[in-house]
Write a protein that binds this DNA or RNA. Structure first.
Length: 379
RNA sequence: GGGCAGGUGGUAGAGAGGUCAAUUACACGUGGCUGUAGACCACGCGCCUUUAUGGCUACGGGGGUUCGAAUCCCUCCCUGCCCA
């Protein structure tokens, strides 16, 4: 089980400084949560991930069920032991894959759309590669085409075998292109699945319910109220929030207003550095995002002055580090931009590791800075 | 000296008379990426412009055949292998 206490509430926003206690240690919140989908922060050892200042990781139920299978993880002593990650873990339920392997794949749709889009997913629409039923979702394994059925009960069963500290209810992450009617119908299902997920839990793990509702404010409110009433240990806020950052801010704030103060809130899959203060100010305690790790493998480093594309040949003769004064393992050791650019161009995996370490450190330090600001009454 | 095989865009390598400014890959360039399908994807990549069913110059050099040549013929130059 987990415990959460807010140490300080901001007077300027809904932001709060807190401590989340878990069987594998405490997390100072707000906290950034690196993504470790397949039981690894891609390109890093657990020791390296720890060295970036990461406190909590999120793994993925669907992917670990597929490979290596939860029984293998169990035979390895559970997720923490297998990964050699001594600190807290959460597992996402597989609800995101209902989007990413469903409509997301069909329409080449992203979770966050940069502009208004056509609401082409209407009630009754069916994704090509998966089958969403009232009871659960039939997936096709991207590995070998096997059919994989995940229901709330099955997701919880898998998550209990995996053994993270915090698990999630199974939900449907709706696509940005979903119209009102589709989103509303999906929400009814997600709410029922939330209850079934909660009832399926047998162990001592904390379980978070997930608020959906897409970009529709009334559905978001309804969802927050409903999920808050079910007795979860904490809350995830999923899906997308409309076309611009201001809408996102309002949406998250509204959702948070309807969630109990004494329980932790996790924003799923957000965000870019500029999204982080928005989420924190709206009252979010933890948030995960693939951006620092994913971009690292595409050669992009994050710095105080913006993104730096290290693929570019202009960096080859640059002997300076990614960011002067940066305390990450990469910059502290003096690995130069030129060297990293060379590694990327030579397709040497060390390049990815070096940028991943920098990026995660950058995100973690950014959030540590916001914790400081809350402490000092500046946020 | 003789014989054989070749010379195509940054590189490798297709193409064997019109549909070729030339398949493809790599390299290169520019964008994208928000609970990870993706160490990935998209686009561009001779030059010019009024960006078009546009113009110009191009498949080693020169000459020829043909309505039309990267593709056929002659010749020169160069490269590799084999024989002397």
């Amino acid at each position: 089980m987990i415990g959460f206490r807010a140490e300080k509430m901001s007077g300027k926003s809904r932001a709060r400084l807190g401590v989340l206690e878990t069987p594998h240690g405490v997390i100072e919140t707000p906290a950034f949560v690196p993504v470790a989908t397949q039981g690894t922060v891609k390109t890093l050892t657990a020791e390296q991930a720890l060295a970036t200042g990461s406190q909590l990781l999120i793994c993925n139920t669907f992917h670990l069920h597929l490979k290596p299978g939860e029984e293998v993880v169990q035979a390895q002593g559970g997720l923490h032991e297998m990964m050699k990650w001594p600190r807290p873990l959460m597992t996402d339920s597989g609800g995101y894959q209902v989007f990413s392997l469903g409509f997301g794949m069909d329409h080449n749709e992203r979770k966050v759309m940069k502009a208004e889009i056509e609401n082409k997913v209407k009630a009754g629409a069916k994704p090509k590669n998966i089958k969403i039923t009232e009871d659960g979702v039939y997936f096709r394994s991207p590995i070998n085409g096997d059919e994989i059925f995940i229901s709330p009960k099955e997701s919880i069963r898998i998550q209990e075998v995996l053994g993270a500290d915090i698990i999630y209810a199974f939900d449907e992450c709706t696509p940005p292109s979903a119209n009102y009617e589709y989103t509303k119908k999906s929400l009814v299902k997600t709410h029922r699945w939330a209850k079934e997920s909660l009832e399926a839990r047998r162990g001592e793990q904390a379980i978070y319910g997930i608020v959906q509702g897409g970009k529709y404010m009334d559905l978001r409110e309804e969802s927050a109220r409903h999920i808050a009433s079910l007795g979860f240990d904490g809350f995830g806020i999923g899906g997308e929030f409309g076309a611009d950052k201001e809408t996102m801010r309002q949406m998250i704030e509204t959702v948070v207003t309807h969630l109990p103060e004494e329980k932790p809130r996790h924003l799923l899959g957000i965000g870019y550095p500029e999204d982080i203060p928005i989420a924190i100010a709206a009252g979010v305690d933890t948030f995960d995002c693939i951006v620092p790790t994913h971009f690292a493998r595409h050669g992009v480093a994050f710095t105080a002055v913006g993104k730096l594309d290290l693929n570019k040949t202009v960096h080859l003769k640059d002997a300076s580090v990614i960011e002067a004064g940066c305390g990450c393992a990469t910059c502290a050791a003096g690995y130069s931009k030129g060297y990293i650019t060379h590694l990327l161009r030579a397709k040497e995996i060390l390049g990815f590791t070096l940028i991943t370490m920098h990026n995660l450190h950058y995100f973690n330090m950014l959030v540590a800075g916001y914790r400081e600001k809350i402490k000092n009454g500046e946020l």
